[in-house]
Amino acid sequence: MADLVAYVIRKILLAIPVIILATFIVFLMLYLTPGDPVIAIAPPHASVDEIQKLRVKYGFDQPFIVQYGKFLWRLMHGDLGTSVGRATLNLNVGDLIVQRLPRTLELMAIGLAISYSLGIPLGIFSARRQNSWGDRSVMVFTLVAYAMPSFWLGILLMLLFAVYLGWLPAEGTVGGYGSIALPAITLGVGNAALTTRMMRSSMLEVTRQDYITQLRSRGLPEREIIYKHAVKNAILPVITVIGLDIGWFVGGAVVVETVFAWPGLGMLITTSISNHDFPVVQGCILILALFVVFGNLMADILYAYVDPRVRLG
């Protein structure tokens, strides 16, 4: 256990530069905008005085490093800026985000659950019946699901379940369990395809290993060999990818929320972009990036918990 703790500490330390990079990229975004950066963060119809005050506050005339420093300082005090969008003028960006974050989190959580509870068993099933019809159909399904961009899948599901069958609501704002179903399924199925393929190839590789033959030579029943030994070993690469999966989910959430008008961070980003509400966009990207880093960290820890060999790394 002690080696696990040491590993966790190491990983947390390693996450810090990534967080710094995230803040730097978000910071940089402002300077990539065409034109004077002040315009992006100034409310519409701002007076010359107000603009000048902003210039001083953000230090646009000062060296880059100083500006970055000010940015970090503001971040550490929880100041993500003020919205300049029409509907949300002068509202604190942080407040807006906090309002929407839980909705995105719950969407992602259910999506993740769907993805793994579908993907892992399907992968095992497929591997055990390699090259059979079952396996082939699963592979075709994964190919198509993987190639489908989330928004298209969302639209299709919407078409099928909301428009033609009328089973589930199309708009996420309706509330209740029904409305989270379609967006969560859209998110989940897309990633399930990836998980299935990874699990399948992992199982295939594990069952070729010497120790599996060794276990068979000791007379262990096949069920135990597959579900106790093979699965535990095969699931490791899948867990390593959880971090990347979370990254995918965050990106996917943005798209899916937009398709279904689900009131989370993704929807916020999209509306802010069309409203040219730069501070909100910036704040959202930062929070999402932090979320990715955090998710990766959790995934790494989980992996080290399951596979003791990694704790040395």
Partner: peptide
Amino acid sequence: DLFWTFPAFLLALAFAAALG
């Protein structure tokens, strides 16, 4: 490694949103 863990879509979104 830093860029690898970042979801490409999110990064692209950030840049596209900023650059216009």
